[in-house]
Design a binder for these strands. Structure first.
Lengths: 334, 334
DNA sequence: TTGTACGCGTTATCAT
DNA sequence: ATGATAACGCGTACAA
């Protein structure tokens, strides 16, 4: 069933069919209705490949993320896909992993697929060594690039993010003002966002005229779902005589590990030890006790991202950076 | 940069370029090398739309799932996307929601996108009213349809699933043999898989010559992440004098709600109350105590599904139904 | 308002 | 082994 079949059945030319298909005004109501009838009758829809070939677009946007099974990224991908589809776009998904090389090749794949736009989900896409971000700049020369939770200055790149620096600083200050003296900062990534969070922690310590102590900045090397590994890692700190009365985590799963540690180490939460997570994910309510966490308003961020994306693709002027602020959601670990 | 540019620079016809591009044997090593050199030099890659138009394929498979942010489905989507990409296919993702209407329109969208194959993730796609599955049969007339965790007899439909009936029966028997007398079965879906699980529970009860009791089959109406709702729901059962010493759950998140209930109701786990989840997800290790759960080997299932998918698309004969068996992973709630 | 004809960049079928 | 050329199905200048 092609546009030719329709034009024949409707007794008009393919140009006219194409016009009604694309909502051109220059077509009489009468013929328009006739064509529409035939189209509905036949259940015809235009061939996307032919249309793509002519317009050089398939109304597709590429979503790249390191790992769509990660609780946080999965939520983001979901919200974005939903928004995109509501806006008439399809979503091609590619999980890139965390290495630069695989991310590069994934983005390359996407560009070859001629997506209209690329969405990079998660701050892990921005490398601290700026030259390593060139492949993103190159992509941005061809299509708009949207970044969720990353900050990157570049033409045709649009960022929606949470002020992780301030959120983490605020959380740290909150702990200090609630009588916590020795706050351990636990993180597991060197992404841009991770670095911002760490800076927020440090700034709060300095602002309160306390001394920074490297022993209180602990990097967990293991996988994101290795809860036992996190527990053991924290236990090992005890053997090194690193003493703390609060753990501020860059991620809810790290906080989950912290709770497991607390149980084994027989530390009373929150009396003896406070724990704060980040992302306000489902883990905050499934763990025990329920976790205080920073809500970074992921859904709002995603909705904004999609909105910006569609605006850019429609040629509407759009701000290149939109920043949400996080807020502490108090539960039972503080 | 088109195939014409390459042919010109290499001093050959576009037919020859196309031949080396597609690995045709009928081309001399010498010209082949020359063409390859030009291609690499220019960084040329064929236009996917034109290729799609000619071949009526873009090497794309559509992944449909109700909600890719659901912990279980997110894992599945991730494994499938990875496998597909490794096999040279792109993945278009569509989250359909749980209603029949939105699923129909999502599948329709996918078919219009001319995907080579459609993967339906999750048993929620198969309706108990068989006429409601006609839209899947129609899709299967055009492209292969792969089902993860659903059982559906239809030409050109391929199923990979876990024997939920047996797994649930086994888990129930296990509880009975460990001195549990009154096992509550908690579920939150009427999907095909959900029904199979329930049947497994019932069969075990009957096999042990016990009486089925509708009070012990409880359906939770709320959302999948409403842990508090699950807790309150279970608390309300106490007021109805429904007494139980074990809760077998169709899902880990339900089990998580059960643990919250146990805490509020001051029931000792596992001594006074046993809890078993399903899926063996990350929730089993983040909750407290860590949850005994049925491992349904999701990753293996997904790998098999992708393998079958690629085989079918390659024209290789492939079994239409592949069944994995689940196994109980004992932790600290039993 | 409507129709004709060409271009989009491939693949594949013919000849040569 | 290689080249010319016809599809593939659509959008759209341009002509009428």
């Amino acid at each position: 069933m092609t546009i030719y079949d329709i034009s024949e059945k409707a007794g008009v030319s393919i140009a006219t069919v194409s016009r009604v298909l694309n909502g051109s005004s220059n077509v009489s109501p009468k013929t328009k209705q006739k064509v529409l009838d035939v189209i509905n009758e036949c259940g015809y829809s235009p061939n996307v490949f032919a249309r793509g070939l002519g317009l050089d677009s398939m109304n597709c946007v590429g979503i790249l993320c390191a790992d769509s099974s990660d609780i946080y990224l999965a939520k983001a991908v979901y919200y974005i896909e939903q928004g995109l589809r509501a806006g008439g776009y399809n979503a091609i998904l590619a999980c890139t992993g965390y290495s630069l090389e695989t991310r590069k090749s994934s983005l390359e794949m996407m560009m070859k697929q001629r997506v209209d736009c690329v969405i990079l989900v998660g701050s892990s896409f921005i490398e601290s060594n700026d030259a390593d971000n060139d492949y993103i700049r190159q992509a941005a020369e061809k299509v708009p690039v949207m970044l969720l939770n990353a900050d990157f200055n570049c033409p045709n790149v649009y960022c929606v993010l949470c002020d992780d620096f301030k959120s983490t600083m605020d959380a740290t200050i909150w702990l200090l003002e609630h009588k916590r003296k020795r706050i351990l900062y636990l993180y597991n990534s060197h992404s841009y966002s991770a670095i911002r969070k760490l800076s927020g922690y440090r700034s709060a310590i300095l602002m309160k005229e306390m001394e920074l102590n490297k022993n209180y900045e602990q990097f967990f090397e293991g996988k994101r779902d290795d809860i036992d590994g996190m527990r053991d890692f924290l236990l090992s700190l005890g053997k090194k005589k690193i003493d703390f009365d609060a753990i501020l985590c860059a991620d809810d799963s790290l906080a989950s590990g912290a709770l497991k540690y607390a149980k084994v180490a027989r530390r009373n939460i929150p009396k003896d030890l406070a724990v704060i997570g980040y992302n306000n994910s489902i883990l905050t309510i499934t763990c025990e006790p329920e976790l205080t966490s920073v809500n970074n308003h992921l859904e709002d961020q995603c909705n904004q991202l999609v909105k910006s994306c569609i605006q850019v693709l429609s040629g509407v002027e759009t701000p290149q950076k939109i920043i949400f602020s996080g807020e502490l959601v108090e539960r039972y670990t503080t």
